[in-house]
Design a binder for these strands. Sequence first.
DNA 1: GACGAGATACCGACCGGTTGGTATGTTCGG
DNA 2: CCGAACATACCAACCGGTCGGTATCTCGTC
Lengths: 206, 206
Amino acid sequence: MARESTARQKLVDAALSLVRTKGYAATSVDELCARAGVTKGAFFHHFANKDALAVAAAEHWSEMTGALFRDAPYHRHRDPLDRVLAYLDFRKSLLKGAVPDFTCLVGTMVQEVYATHPDIRAACDASISGHAATLEADIAEAMKLYGVTSFTAASLALHTQAVLQGAFILAKAKGGPRIAAASIDHLRRYIELLFQPKDHKGRTRQ
Amino acid sequence: MARESTARQKLVDAALSLVRTKGYAATSVDELCARAGVTKGAFFHHFANKDALAVAAAEHWSEMTGALFRDAPYHRHRDPLDRVLAYLDFRKSLLKGAVPDFTCLVGTMVQEVYATHPDIRAACDASISGHAATLEADIAEAMKLYGVTSFTAASLALHTQAVLQGAFILAKAKGGPRIAAASIDHLRRYIELLFQPKDHKGRTRQ
DNA sequence: GACGAGATACCGACCGGTTGGTATGTTCGG
DNA sequence: CCGAACATACCAACCGGTCGGTATCTCGTC
């Protein structure tokens, strides 16, 4: 359990890439093996079935993105609102390259399997909700600091994830990240408006 | 061309239901035929292949939703901003029942096929963009009326669609429409904040 | 209004390839 | 020599799609 075996890791990596391009159902086991450079025997040695790989891929995705955002520089801001806004800037900066490279594995998978594969759905939900929770802390702190009470931190955190997931769909429909970036801009403006001081009691930024 | 043949119509209806629950790739032609109460011969008489049904389903979806929103009562408001806000209220009111019943066919399909089926992707894009365009008119009018210029009407219209699509993903991940509704609330608040008069020059609503 | 020719709508057996999954090795470090 | 980590060969079910055939309708001709 300590060190990941190479074949297993290569299969998970293949899943990340293939599922994000073709979706889960359209990605075959043979294709995954070929991409990973592994035989079918190795696949079913490491995973009980195709669904188990999907769950493992979702969990690996959680760990990957967890580390990416944990180590991202946006946490350095002292003001929690600045942290939230910098998070959005960071998300926007990730919208580069081809569509499968910046879109979300679990968002893609859960659309296909939510009604048919309960365990995959749960793993995807855990990934999205877990990530939202890291944002929720900063949002809650900002709400306290700025005296904002008209909504819950949890709902705003999930709203940011909704915008991002929806932006990915638009990017897929339109073939590029441009509109996705525009949507993040709208979300950023929303949060600025939510927290703007009503009585213009000066804030210092950065 | 005037009247739709029943078998074709039944197949399109079956596609709407099955694809929204299981996704496109996981829905087989046999399954579509069984649901429609039609034989495979009928299927390939009306559609060249499975992809052609998907395109037809997306087009039918555009017509269906087009009619639904064209006839919806939210157009009655005189103030274009009220129309936009009432549109969101209407969208929120549609979030009832089981997840497959209120989620979006084209948003689901485009996620799976954007990289592999260009014609389906195009049909889905046309559906989303066409619907956004009907909103864009009201938004543009409201921007002119309220003197708002800091973004384009097109980008806000597409942002609303991003929020809705993202809300559907969250609903699928969490198994119910509750968080989706909360996300629409956030979007509504955003638009209210965008158009709120800065100099408090009284507006009459309704 | 009888008739046949062609078009349309539909049927269901069938096909080759692919699918997820299994059964049975083989290899190799400890 | 045992078990983990693979490899190979294989399978039944299912996949999208084909094809020869039939039932019914339309329409022009006499």
